[in-house]
Design a protein around this nucleic acid. Sequence first.
DNA 1: TTCGCGCCATGACGTGTGTCAATCAGGGTG
DNA 2: CACCCTGATTGACACACGTCATGGCGCGAA
Lengths: 248, 248
Amino acid sequence: MEPLKTMSVVTDSPCPHRHNVNCGDCRMKALCLPLALELDQVEQLDRIIQRGRPYQREEHIYRAGDAFHAVYAVRSGAIKTFAMTDQGVEQVTGFYLPGEIFGMDGIAHTHHISSALALETSAVCEIPFTRLEDLSIALPSLQRHFFQLMSREIINDQRLVALIGKNSADERLATLLMSISTRNAKRNLSELRFRLPMSRADIGNYLGLTVETVSRVFSRFQKQRLLKVDKKEIEILDLGGLQELANV
Amino acid sequence: MEPLKTMSVVTDSPCPHRHNVNCGDCRMKALCLPLALELDQVEQLDRIIQRGRPYQREEHIYRAGDAFHAVYAVRSGAIKTFAMTDQGVEQVTGFYLPGEIFGMDGIAHTHHISSALALETSAVCEIPFTRLEDLSIALPSLQRHFFQLMSREIINDQRLVALIGKNSADERLATLLMSISTRNAKRNLSELRFRLPMSRADIGNYLGLTVETVSRVFSRFQKQRLLKVDKKEIEILDLGGLQELANV
DNA sequence: TTCGCGCCATGACGTGTGTCAATCAGGGTG
DNA sequence: CACCCTGATTGACACACGTCATGGCGCGAA
């Protein structure tokens, strides 16, 4: 057996969840807010960002009804956001991976209308919103970058509407898998082998399908030699075939 | 026959599409961008807004591929926005009524990725985006207001995802009708009688349904005495019943 | 007027996905 | 070890909605 890779969270370099990392040193800086900023501007942003201890699996970052005061960036792990319809039905609204921003739907109101929880142990940067607003006035490129981030969120949601409204179960799941694959590639992880952080139920909820259908599609994809599936471990055997199914 | 009501667009008071109206006099100012601004700030905003001649039915405000340089506010009429999937399938992404802002999905890129066209004769305010950004730096309340507008767009899209992913055809159409009804009420129009500006095909496309299903649901709603339907003219007979079906 | 064309409505039929139920594997606990 | 519990898989069946086809209505053109 090879030596243990990470003994504890206190180990200072290789632990992905350590929280004493500033933006300049963060592995995700190329994907995240600092993208459009000069070095000294990144330092200004850095000073307003708050980093707490990592969240454990199933722990909430915020809940619907909480006062809204920040947006969040994922540094490690995976986050799911979801809303409740007034009949008490959960609606998963998104899965967020390292380098991605979530919580922007809270800006419209004084309180969150959706919730966010960690799907696995996750480190999260908290960006107090009023201070981000102030800084955006001082740094026009930050303002622009944040407008663009929100616009991208709108585009993503619209694509999801199209996906759910017009595509079959196979196409929906293929699209989600391709999305995770390409997002992994951006983070220099394998685009062919990865572990899904969310349950089948979450996937179904997100894609407008039942758990049973999600399960059947996974089985079908295995029979067609598109995937190798072992619980949450996914290996893409035929990226081209999956891409063709996916709604790009 | 009674006297003609509006002889021409030059008539200065009752024509809903006239374009020589500034924000301060606009009937929609309570719903639109100026909402959060002081009087002198509204004047500043007013100076950057461009108002052209009204758009005719089926005329494009912008097309996918056009350079992005502005967001838009509807002053009269009705606008539909839509994207094309790369297989050439149209996806209607929204219907916009007077006082509402559209085009925010273009901010993320240098070019529009969706298109917008007038469903009927419509007057539209064009808000050049770089000037809006500049002004947002000078007027923090404008920056905040615009962040909130975009956030609201995100929330709307997420609700649409839930609607399409989890609700029946009846519930989807009821929700759209209730949405139009309440938006009409905000504009001091009747919430019980209105004319749908879009075709059955547009409704179906937006809600992830076929034209035939939309047609059948309208018929069903008439049999159940929820609605009176005459082509595009809608009269809501049982607002409570419709509300109950709607996903609020 | 008559023709043609969109748009809408309605019926017959097929099917993809939901529903319900049974079973299984894995992980935690006593 | 047995036990339970949650998540996942698989099968049988039902049904809501899509598909295909027909026909009507209203409107503009000739």
